[in-house]
Design a protein around this nucleic acid. Structure first.
Lengths: 218, 218
DNA sequence: CTCATAAACTAGCGGTGTAAGTTTTCATTC
DNA sequence: GAATGAAAACTTACACCGCTAGTTTATGAG
């Protein structure tokens, strides 16, 4: 087949299909040939639209990040904005858990990931956090969200009662974790996020507010 | 070469060499043939000692986990034990960052990972946390530690000043993050961990201690 | 001494990412 | 409207991947 009258592929169609395949079968199951086949095309044709497979994955990762809402930093106080952002971030990642290991490597050059970092960092600095602190807070929350979406804690345990009964006295019920996967993971996330934000709020009153009220224009 | 007089391979030697290769060149660069070559042997010979490549990676991951110290749960109060454990866990992972994506998938059937989960969960329950809460706390800390070791926050940003200057007003200094990688990542971890533990301590006094003092044997 | 097992080998299968070169069509320019 | 260059599909091919099968020989147990 030579060049078709209407292009068979577009970047958008490739990314969309790649995400669907990753969601369905996992990151490891995405090969250029399988992706091409799903698009009704031969493997190397993809390289007319992307330079490498990683470039395709970057695009997929960025479409996932686009769904993250950082609007709170423009309209709400920093603590509420952080909470909203963290939950939105988590929802975006858990909607496509199989791409998270790739996405968790950092923003790289992906526009949506950079825009997100920009909004979070800018919002924290505007709220009065020192720049270095703002970096730390953004990083800490990213650690937590990425870690929570990366491997489901609950699914990480094998469903094999005998394995635990033998050697791990406190894990007798661990094989049941998979049943309640979603509630375990979400409960752990909610608890951890609340604790984290609680601690940050305390730190804020201890450092930022104190310093500001001591300044002439505080 | 037929069967040698003294075996050329042992499981330990394979695991040790695999970890060294992963540390040096990354998880993706570990192939059975390259690993075998580093051991002075042909690729398929590895399968006399391990059934699959994943089994090798499991063994590598578990040797990394062995270094995590959970001793605090036997000797210290739960909050100090959590802090010690989290730092020890982080040190163990950041010593071998390239294996973290594999390790972060969960304990599976790896003995050291299961023993760690057992110690943490047991310690928290013994301190008075309700079992469901103990699960959440262990998971939340694992999220945070794994996320922090997974992709270095600082290294996730590309070293390209122009990229940021153009479109991301608050990230003008982001290209410098890589220089201070270790201090950024450690600072973010320290801040986040302190905040998390601070929040958990507050939750403890609010729920566990209150309930215990209300009980006859409180 | 016998013999099953262990531990190396070689050969090979089906899969991978992607480079190279071919063909035809589209879009632009003279 | 013809010429031309880029675009978008193709086929072929390379080096690598995890792993299986079958071969050879040394070891260790009965």
């Amino acid at each position: 087949m030579p060049r078709p009258r209407r292009p068979l592929l577009t970047r958008d169609r490739i990314v969309e299909t790649a995400l669907a395949l990753i969601d369905a079968d996992g990151l490891g199951a995405l090969s250029t040939r399988r992706l091409a086949a799903a698009l009704g095309v031969q493997g190397p044709s993809l390289y007319n639209h992307f330079a490498t497979k990683d470039e395709i994955l970057d695009a997929v990762a960025d479409t996932v990040t686009v769904a993250v809402d950082t609007g709170g930093f423009a309209s709400r106080d920093w603590l509420a904005a952080l909470r909203d952002w963290a939950w939105s971030y988590r929802r975006a990642l858990t909607a496509h858990p199989n791409i998270v290991p790739y996405l968790a490597q950092g923003p790289g050059r992906r526009p949506a990931a950079l825009a997100m970092a920009d909004a979070v960092y800018g919002g924290l600095v505007r709220a009065g956090w020192p720049p270095a602190r703002a970096t730390h807070i953004g990083a800490a929350l990213r650690y937590f969200v990425a870690g929570s979406a990366l491997g489901s804690f609950a699914r990480g345990f094998v469903e094999d009662p005998e394995l635990y009964a033998a050697h791990y006295p406190h894990l007798r019920q661990a094989h049941r974790l998979a049943e309640h996967q979603q509630s375990v993971d979400e409960g752990a996330f909610a608890l951890g996020l609340d604790a984290l934000l609680h601690g940050l709020a305390a730190e804020y009153t201890r450092t930022v507010e104190t310093v500001e009220s001591a300044r002439p224009n505080g």
